[in-house]
């Protein structure tokens, strides 16, 4: 089985969010970069677990980003995976990114494509769904369990009112969330091995962006907390009813 895992570089979850150049650009100064948690903890680690069960499995990682994404993709390779592909584009248009990955996916004839459920920077949750349309493959989103027997995948996914188990025939695309796999950290052997694993850099295919970011804004700061006397919960209820008008 051949698995393609989509990896995105995101700011650390505790990074300070600020913007520069007239609020048109994210301020990267002092920001620690990480593998998007959903891509790492759930998509990549589940792929590694599948390879541990069936060592003939081949895992490729793909990222769309500039050379600064390489430490992240090396870190992903240190966790596991056989080789990585970086498409040299800094696009933040979901369609362009999905289209680049779709070219790699077509070329590699993968049985399975894993993505995280969304990235923690743009929160668009677009790539898996877009890939399914570009490649015309089945797509299951928000998966928290995934197993495969022969050509048939069994997936548990979150639905509006609970959980659903479904089956699909490979090839397919799955977006992964909490529950898929246990978080792990790279060991020294993995880190050493990652240094020599192949990392291919591809020139982006020409595609026209469908969207562009105009400007960023920060939410207005809260005017300050109103402290209520713990002995006077009637007052809190009154404020919630009359001032905030939420109950």
């Amino acid at each position: 089985m051949k698995i393609l895992v989509c990896i995105s570089k995101t700011p650390d979850t505790t990074a300070k969010i600020a913007f520069i150049e007239g609020n048109t650009k994210f301020d990267e100064s002092g920001v620690q970069w990480i593998i998007n948690p959903y891509d790492e903890w759930y998509a990549l680690v589940r792929a590694i677990e599948l390879k541990e069960k069936d060592p003939s499995t081949i895992i490729h990682l793909v990222t769309v980003g500039g050379v600064e994404a390489e430490p992240i993709i090396r870190k992903a390779l240190a966790l596991g995976g056989d080789e990585a592909i970086r498409i040299d584009s800094n696009s933040n248009d979901s369609f362009t990114v999905a289209n680049e990955i779709a070219q790699v996916a077509k070329e590699g004839a993968y049985d399975l494509i894993f993505t995280g459920k969304e990235t923690i920077d743009y929160n668009s949750a677009c790539i898996g769904s877009m890939l399914s349309a570009l490649l015309d493959l089945p797509f299951v989103s928000l998966a928290d369990h995934f197993d495969v027997t022969g050509n048939t995948a069994t997936i548990k996914r979150e639905i509006e009112s609970g959980e659903e188990t479904c089956e699909a025939t490979l090839p397919m695309i799955v977006s992964c969330q909490k529950g898929m796999a246990e978080q792990r950290i790279p060991n020294m052997r993995g880190i050493m091995a990652a240094r020599t694993k192949p990392l291919k850099v591809l020139t982006p295919a020409a595609s026209t962006a469908t969207t562009s970011i105009q400007i960023f804004d920060l939410p207005p700061t809260k005017s300050g907390v109103k402290l209520i006397d713990p002995e006077n919960m009637d007052e809190l209820v009154r404020l919630l009813k009359e001032e905030a008008k939420v109950i």
Partner: peptide
Amino acid sequence: HNINGKAIAPAVAVRLGAGIVTG
């Protein structure tokens, strides 16, 4: 932008050749 919308809307955008904003 709920569970179903998140899953379907980006694929619809691709099939329509449309740009999309989610969230």
